[in-house]
Structure formats: structure tokens, C-alpha cells
Write a protein that binds this DNA or RNA. Structure first.
Lengths: 148, 148
DNA sequence: TCGCCATGGTTACGATTGCAACCAATTCCT
DNA sequence: AGGAATTGGTTGCAATCGTAACCATGGCGA
């Protein structure tokens, strides 16, 4: 029986999600920040361009859920590091085509197994039923939150 | 069959969680920010003291997963608003006992149903099986992430 | 073709944040 | 009893972030 005049913060869904997410993304960012010296937006940008190949900054933002100023700064930082190259689009001179350099591609390939093993480390201490439940629950929540 | 050299960001658990959490907490903070003019740390502080009654700042931080500087600033803001009162602890003069004022208690009581209905709004478009799965999955993830 | 709105991207600015340093009070150790 | 280490809480500072404003280019309607 729940008390109607009180809210149990530790059971409140938005709070549980932020707490989990804070802990997980802090742990994960340590894993690559120490290794690669990347910030979170830079990591996401690397991951997105690595996944799709050449993209524009707007496309990176759309696919990684980042504000365009974040993308802009992350792209600038990765360019300074010479991990990506900007090429003017001949069709539309507002647009820049972003591509990973050889070094950037190498960094991406090093990063992928780190990310996979981090995720595995999270999931391996759950039972198969729990893992399945998590995926079902997250997909349902995404459906209700990220659409319409 | 998954490509081993590439990471699908949209399937990567930490990314899915941050995206969901960003969207949910942005929506929710709009719900109370517009209504009450509270920041997120202030909301959490109000929610925590409202739930437990008198507490110290350290206890608020422990129960709401907030850094002590966040708590300190949120307490100062709520005090300026006259929603809470600090009382020196006679046993230990380092400690301040934090209590909601009458106005703060009223604000808390107004806030609780808003929070509940926000949560309900998230869950009501999921099936009962999906809701159950979400709770199982989150609990399992909390167990692996937030312990030891 | 001209003017207006939309789009891609950058930048200035204020607000928020976490870290580290700090102060005061308490506890621990000898 | 008296330092040294610990704890509760605050503040200075640098970094990060989002909003809004901005520049340049492109698309579109009259």
C-alpha cells in the first residue's frame, strides 16, 4: 500500500533512470577518456561517423541526439586532433562532408571492442530473463517517449 | 548477424539510456519548472526532504544521488524562497537540520500528484507485460551498476 | 529576378556543474 | 590533553552546456 501524500524518490521512474544513466555513462566515459582523451560529445561523433562513414554535421546530430553546437565543437576538436577531415560539398557550399582520417578510423576500431566489452560487463551479471526483460522494457519506453 | 567492426550506436545500451533519460527528464523538468520555477537539484531536494521530513544536507545528497555542492546550492535557493528552514543541530554544530516550511510543504504536496501523473503518463502507453519487464530490467541493472 | 524564408554551421553569453580548496567542528589516537 | 585525521558544509574556478543571435548559402514564390 503506497502513501498517497508522499513520493518515494527511489521508486520514481525518472529518478531511477537518471541515477542509472549517470552512473553508467560516468563509468563508461572513464573507460575511453583515460584511454583516448575524448569527451562524451567527441566520443559520440566518432562513433557516429565510424558507423556510417561520411556524414554531415546535421546528420551526426540527428543520429546521435546531440545539439548542433555540441556537434560543432566536437567536430572542431576531432579535426584539431586530425581524426577527421572536412570536405566542402560541391553541390551545396553550406555543407561539410565529415570523414574519419586514417588515424581516426584506427581510433574508432580500437574503441569498438572497448565499448562492446563494457556493455557485456553490464549485462553479464544479469540472468538471461533479466536481460530480455530489460530490452523489452527499454524498447517500450523508447516507443512511448521518443515518438510522435 | 552483427558486424564486428562497427558499433550500432542506436543499440548501444549506455547510449539508449542517456537518450531516454535526457528526453524524460527534460519533459519532466518542464512540467515543474514552468509550474514551480524549480531547477532539477532544487526539485530533488524538495522531494527528498518532503519524503523523509527533517534531514541533513549530507543525507539529502546520499538519498538523491547529488553531489554535496549541488545540495548546498539547492538548499540555499530553497531557503531564499522560504520553502525550507535550517536549524542548527545542538548535538553537532557542524550539522544543519533541514525542514520544509509550511509553504515548502504545500509546494511538495502540490508537486507529488504532478510527478505521479507524469509517471503514469509514461507507463500507460505500455502493455502490462512491458511495464513488468521494464521494472525487472531496471532492477537488475541497478543491482549490477549501483552496488559494490 | 528579386525578396523572403529555411537550412548548415559557428560563436558569444549566461547558467550550471564538478573538482579542489577551504573553514569549522568533531573524533580518533597516543 | 593535544595534535592529526575526518566530517559537514560552502565557495572559487575552470570547463561544459543550451539558448539565441549570427553569417553564409540555398530554395521558393510572385
Amino acid at each position: 500500500m503506497t502513501d498517497q501524500t508522499t513520493l518515494a524518490l527511489e521508486d520514481f521512474l525518472p529518478y531511477r533512470l537518471t541515477r542509472l544513466t549517470d552512473a553508467i555513462s560516468r563509468d563508461f566515459s572513464q573507460a575511453y577518456r583515460a584511454r583516448l582523451g575524448l569527451t562524451r560529445p567527441e566520443w559520440r561523433t566518432l562513433a557516429t561517423i565510424g558507423q556510417f562513414g561520411t556524414m554531415t554535421a546535421t546528420e551526426v546530430g540527428a543520429h546521435s541526439s546531440m545539439h548542433k553546437t555540441k556537434v560543432s565543437r566536437a567536430v572542431a576538436a576531432l579535426e584539431t586532433r586530425r581524426w577527421l577531415v572536412r570536405t566542402p560539398d560541391p553541390q551545396d557550399r553550406r555543407v561539410e562532408r565529415l570523414t574519419l582520417s586514417k588515424t581516426g578510423q584506427k581510433a574508432y576500431e580500437d574503441m569498438v571492442p572497448v565499448a562492446r566489452s563494457f556493455e557485456t560487463g553490464l549485462l553479464e551479471r544479469m540472468t538471461p530473463e533479466e536481460r530480455a526483460a530489460l530490452l523489452v522494457g527499454l524498447a517500450a519506453l523508447e516507443r512511448t517517449v521518443l515518438t510522435e
